Computed example of a mutant assay.
Amino acid sequence: MIGRIRGVLAEKQAPEILVDVNGVGYELLVPMTTLYQLPGIGAEVSLHTHFAVSETAQTLYGFYAAKERTLFRTLIKVSGVGPKMALAILSGMEADQLVQCVMQDNVSALVKVPGVGRKTAERLIVELRDKLSQWELTASPLAALEAASAPQSNKSSSSDMVAEAESALVALGYKPTEASKLVTGVLKDKTVERSEDLIRLALRSLAPA
């Protein structure tokens, strides 16, 4: 099993990234919460990983923090929750937010995740409550990023940014019409210069307060 990977961030197209390790490129799927914390292209990156093997694919998942991987592994043990759904859940809310949803029986927040119906949300709460009861809540790293979200040099053109954001949301399980609606809703009220920020804000609009 591949448990950790360190190399140069070669490509970043949400939710997939490419890490160059001594000339070998490893493709990883990462939750949006990890993507927001990655450095720029060409910088060194170190990620905790989970290697998933199915009948049709072998997929490497990457996580910025060890506790994100722990939560991912806990999620995929829940009946009816596969890696794709777990990735979507961790993209739509931070680890601590998910724990709070479970402990507060917040079904309405969970059903906003694509593929999570009411029965699945209720099963998540029932099966995770005891497992997450000792989870230690920490200060949100994304809140700090938002506070310092000054424009950066890798801003996208408006049309490319919208296309990238909608493509990433579709890859996470949202229908094209839903993705378009989320992106449009963000751009109606905010000025955004990077696709990553647009994705984050679109997902944040669905996350629990």
Rank of each mutant, 00 (worst) to 15 (best):
residue 198 L to Q: 03
residue 137 L to W: 01
residue 108 S to W: 11
residue 94 E to N: 07
residue 154 N to F: 13
residue 58 Q to N: 12
residue 166 E to Q: 15
residue 61 Y to E: 04
residue 89 I to F: 04
residue 186 V to C: 08
residue 160 D to L: 12
residue 7 G to C: 05
residue 54 S to N: 11
residue 106 N to S: 12
residue 134 Q to C: 01
residue 149 S to V: 03
residue 44 E to L: 09
residue 206 L to W: 06
residue 156 S to R: 12
residue 74 T to A: 13
residue 71 L to D: 03
residue 168 A to V: 04
residue 33 T to M: 01
residue 150 A to V: 15
residue 178 E to H: 11
residue 151 P to W: 08
residue 48 H to V: 09
residue 87 L to G: 04
residue 111 V to D: 06
residue 94 E to A: 08
residue 3 G to I: 03
residue 147 A to Q: 12
residue 112 K to P: 10
residue 12 K to W: 00
residue 100 Q to T: 14
residue 37 Q to I: 00
residue 53 V to W: 04
residue 107 V to S: 07
residue 67 K to S: 11
residue 169 L to N: 09
residue 13 Q to F: 04
residue 11 E to V: 05
residue 5 I to T: 07
residue 115 G to H: 03
residue 195 S to F: 02
residue 81 V to R: 04
residue 206 L to R: 14
residue 179 A to W: 10
residue 50 H to K: 07
residue 166 E to W: 05
residue 175 K to P: 13
residue 103 M to Q: 15
residue 28 L to G: 11
residue 68 E to M: 04
residue 100 Q to P: 06
residue 157 S to D: 15
residue 136 E to K: 15
residue 17 I to H: 08
residue 73 R to M: 15
residue 160 D to G: 09
residue 153 S to K: 10
residue 171 A to N: 13
residue 9 L to Q: 02
residue 123 R to K: 13
residue 127 E to M: 02
residue 163 A to N: 12
residue 66 A to M: 08
residue 30 V to P: 01
residue 86 A to V: 05
residue 127 E to Q: 12
residue 38 L to E: 04
residue 6 R to P: 00
residue 9 L to I: 02
residue 199 I to D: 02
residue 209 A to E: 14
residue 190 K to P: 03
residue 146 E to I: 10
residue 35 L to E: 03
residue 135 W to R: 07
residue 34 T to I: 00
residue 121 A to D: 09
residue 139 A to H: 06
residue 87 L to Y: 05
residue 10 A to V: 05
residue 168 A to M: 10
residue 202 A to H: 02
residue 146 E to R: 13
residue 9 L to R: 01
residue 27 E to L: 14
residue 183 V to I: 13
residue 20 D to R: 02
residue 93 M to N: 05
residue 195 S to C: 07
residue 40 G to W: 00
residue 79 S to T: 14
residue 145 L to P: 00
residue 157 S to E: 14
residue 128 L to H: 07
residue 171 A to L: 13
residue 164 E to Q: 14
residue 26 Y to D: 02
residue 1 M to Y: 07
residue 22 N to P: 00
residue 153 S to E: 13
residue 152 Q to W: 04
residue 177 T to P: 00
residue 174 Y to H: 11
residue 203 L to K: 08
residue 47 L to A: 02
residue 112 K to R: 15
residue 34 T to G: 01
residue 148 A to N: 15
residue 59 T to C: 04
residue 117 G to W: 03
